[in-house]
Design a protein around this nucleic acid. Sequence first.
DNA 1: TGATGAAATGTTATGTCATAACGTTTGAGG
DNA 2: CCTCAAACGTTATGACATAACATTTCATCA
Lengths: 140, 140
Amino acid sequence: MTHDTESTPDLTRNQALVFGALSGAEGPLSAYTILDQLRDDGLRAPLQVYRALDKLVEFGLVHRLESLNAFVACNHPAGDAPGESHGTVAFAICEECGGVTEFAEQDVVKRLQGWARTEGFHATSTVIELRGLCESCAPA
Amino acid sequence: MTHDTESTPDLTRNQALVFGALSGAEGPLSAYTILDQLRDDGLRAPLQVYRALDKLVEFGLVHRLESLNAFVACNHPAGDAPGESHGTVAFAICEECGGVTEFAEQDVVKRLQGWARTEGFHATSTVIELRGLCESCAPA
DNA sequence: TGATGAAATGTTATGTCATAACGTTTGAGG
DNA sequence: CCTCAAACGTTATGACATAACATTTCATCA
């Protein structure tokens, strides 16, 4: 144990390898793409990657993009305290360059929570993903 | 041609079969579940279902739930003119009973559009899905 | 009427994403 | 040291989706 008030937990070897692959990537990666990149590091089966991904998502270090069946390293743009990190975030996914922008729109989340409250729906997770073209890739 | 100002287009046989299966279902169905239900009607291959689904989604009669890899018949709760039907809608998916509630929160959409505008992101589609427990299934 | 072209269809094969089930290894704490 | 939970390794299988190619349907129009 590396002592640890409540920050990022120690990663196991496989978790570190998978997180490294995602951190170094320009965009989202599928589990099988990650596996291919890590063959030389000893990973051999999809399950090794999926198990690491499950944990990394649980730790909040990685996000799963539902509309892509792929994963990205978390990159929320600024101040988050160690204890309680982020809540719901949204993603803008460029279909041209593959780039993903993570953002938090508190008003959006509040509105959705409001709807849920009035309907008695108890949300455990929320998916918000925009698909389209980023500024660089959009036609002039 | 059944003349047609700009309402729902005529469906082909396969499209009608698939739409019928989704309309009759209590919750979302996967393409393969639909296929199984339509074997007796002559459907034999996944592609027949996927092609029909593509069209139905294009027509706005069916929605794809990204976080479930499944499909539901559209059921937006009220007034929509024939010409321009709905824009972005959101879904609340109960993980206990499988029920799906479709809803439109215009403020949420506006906020996301606002973010996109300021970032220069040109969204072509938007996914909003809440996962959790519906009122009936939530613990007392 | 009958040529024609776009859309839909039928079929086989394959690609991609994800987990079940089993046994083994690792390592912190008693 | 023992023990137990967590992580790991491996094989097999399940679930979701599309490529490629041949054929049929049917509204349009010369």
